Computed example of a mutant assay.
Amino acid sequence: MGKIDPLRAANLSEEVTEEVGELMDYNLPPGIFCERFHRAVDAAFKLKYKGLGASVTK
């Protein structure tokens, strides 16, 4: 995709986080939930958008 603008980056991130959010167990304790969500979003983004070099930060 080359260099992408901030709005496009936000839209890609939103798409991935919503997909992951639909699969999450919202009954987990907050710390465990956050860690699993972070890892799942990072993995899903890298799988869906190979080569973008994006990462999720806390």
Rank of each mutant, 00 (worst) to 15 (best):
K46M: 10
T17E: 01
E19H: 07
A40E: 06
K3C: 11
K48F: 01
G31D: 11
E22W: 05
C34K: 15
G31R: 10
G51R: 09
V41S: 00
V41F: 00
L12A: 00
V16I: 13
I4G: 02
L23F: 04
P30L: 14
A43Q: 12
G51W: 04
P29L: 11
L47R: 15
A44I: 01
A40L: 05
S55Q: 13
N11R: 15
G53C: 06
G21C: 01
V41T: 02
S55V: 13
R8P: 03
D42I: 04
E35K: 13
V41K: 01
E19R: 08
E35I: 09
N11V: 08
T57V: 15
L28W: 04
E15G: 05
G2F: 07
F37M: 10
S13Y: 05
G2Q: 04
E15Y: 05
R8Y: 12
A44W: 02
V41H: 00
A10F: 10
L52H: 08
E18H: 01
G31V: 07
T17F: 05
D25A: 07
S55N: 12
R39D: 15
D42T: 07
L47Q: 14
A10C: 03
F37W: 12
S13G: 15
A9N: 09
N27A: 11
V20M: 03
V16G: 00
H38Q: 12
F45A: 07
P6Y: 05
A9G: 08
V20Q: 00
K58P: 15
G21W: 01
K3D: 15
G21K: 01
F37K: 03
A9T: 00
P29F: 05
R8Q: 14
I32Q: 14
V20F: 01
F37N: 01
A44Y: 04
L7V: 15
A43H: 12
N11L: 15
G2W: 05
A40R: 07
V16W: 00
G53L: 06
K3S: 15
A44L: 06
M24P: 02
D5S: 10
A44M: 10
M24V: 02
T17R: 05
L23Q: 13
G2M: 06
K46E: 09
R36P: 02
G53P: 03
T57L: 11
A43M: 13
D5A: 11
E18Y: 00
K3I: 15
K46I: 09
D5F: 06
L12S: 01
S13V: 02
F33A: 02
F37P: 00
M1P: 15
R8E: 15
K48P: 02
D25R: 08
L28S: 02
K48M: 08
K46W: 07
K50N: 11
T57A: 14
R36L: 12
D5R: 08
A44T: 09
G31N: 10
G53Y: 03
C34F: 13
K50H: 06
R36W: 06
L12H: 04
